[in-house]
Nucleic acid binder design. Structure first.
Ligand code: FES
Ligand code: FES
Lengths: 144, 144
DNA sequence: AAATTAAAGGATAATTTTATCCCTTAACAT
DNA sequence: ATGTTAAGGGATAAAATTATCCTTTAATTT
C-alpha cells in the first residue's frame, strides 16, 4: 500500500506531533527508537518531511524535530503520503496504467476506483492530531 | 497496491479467460502482446499461475495457456492476488506491523481496516469471468 | 521415431527500494 | 571565539523487485 519510507514518515510525524503536544522537540535517535526504524534511513525521511514543511527542524544542541501546534490540526495524512509517495496511491490505476481514466478503463477500474476514492477521502480527512491523540491515550501504538 | 508481477498476473488471467470463452488456447507471445508486458517476465508469472491451478498450460505445438470454463465462473480476483502477492494486501497492517491486530493497533488501524476490508471484499467477490466479459464487450482494456 | 514447437526452469542482470556511512553545516553552550 | 551537538547532504551498499537469457522438458506434427 504505502512504501516503507512512507510508513516511517507517517509514524515519525505522529510521534513528533504527539511530543509537540507537550511542546517537546525530539531528536532523530529518539524518533527512530519510538517508531522502531533504522536511524540513518529515518534521517533521510525526516529531511524530506522538513523540506515539505511537514515538520520543523533545528540543528545543534537541544535541536531536533518539532511541529507547529496550529498547523498540526490542519495537517492531514494525505499531505504526508503525497510528500513521500506522490499521489499514485489514490490517483493511480490498479493495474498499472500510466493514467487511470474512464475513457480507457482497465478491467478493474470501476471496482477499484470506489475503494481508491474512499482511501483518498480517508487520507484527506484524517488529521495527524487525531492520530497522535489516540497514541497519547494508549489507544494506538507505534511499534509492537 | 499490487506488485507489478500481480498486475501482469491479473491482466494475463483476464486475457486468457476472455479467449477461453472462445475455447481458444493462447501462447506466451500473444499474451505478452495483449497485455503489453515483457515476455520472459510474463512467462515466470504464468508458471506461478499454472502451479496454482489458476490457468492450465500445455507444452508443444498448438500448446499454450487456457482455462476451464466452469472454473472460470468461480475464480475470483482474490485467488490471483493471493497466489502472487500473498494475503498481505488485505490482511496486513497499513503501517507495516507484522500483524494487524485490535490488541495492539497502529495509529491508522481503525481508519485503514475499513478500507482494507472493502478491498478484500471486492477481490473476493469480483470474478474473472465478469472482468473478461467487459473486456470482450469493449468496456475495458488491457493496455492503453 | 524424428523434428518441431512451446512451456518449465535455472542462472544472471538491471533497476528500484531500503539502508548505512561519513563528512558538512548550523545552532547552541561554555 | 571555540567546542560540542544534532540535522543536512553526498556517496555507497545491501536487499528486493523486475527483467532477460538460455537450456531442459514435454507435447504435437510429420
Ligand atoms: S484505469 Fe485502472 S483503475 Fe482506472
Ligand atoms: S495494526 Fe495497523 S492496520 Fe491494523
Amino acid at each position: 500500500m504505502f512504501s516503507k519510507s512512507c510508513e516511517y514518515a507517517i509514524k515519525a510525524t505522529i510521534y513528533i506531533a504527539e511530543q509537540a503536544g507537550f511542546d517537546k522537540r525530539v531528536g532523530l535517535k529518539e524518533i527512530a527508537q519510538a517508531i522502531d526504524s533504522p536511524e540513518a534511513f529515518t534521517a533521510k525521511i525526516l529531511q524530506q518531511l522538513s523540506k515539505n514543511r511537514i515538520v520543523d527542524s533545528v540543528k545543534g544542541p537541544s535541536g531536533g524535530f518539532s511541529m507547529d501546534k496550529k498547523n498540526l490540526e490542519v495537517l492531514k495524512l494525505s499531505q504526508i503520503v503525497k510528500a513521500i509517495d506522490g499521489d499514485s496511491v489514490y490517483k493511480g490505476c490498479g493495474l498499472g496504467f500510466n493514467e487511470c481514466s474512464e475513457k480507457k478503463p482497465c478491467p478493474v477500474h470501476y471496482k477499484f476506483k470506489t475503494i481508491r476514492d474512499e482511501l483518498r477521502n480517508m487520507l484527506e480527512t484524517t488529521s495527524v492530531k487525531d492520530l497522535s491523540m489516540n497514541l497519547n491515550k494508549g489507544l494506538a501504538f507505534l511499534k509492537k
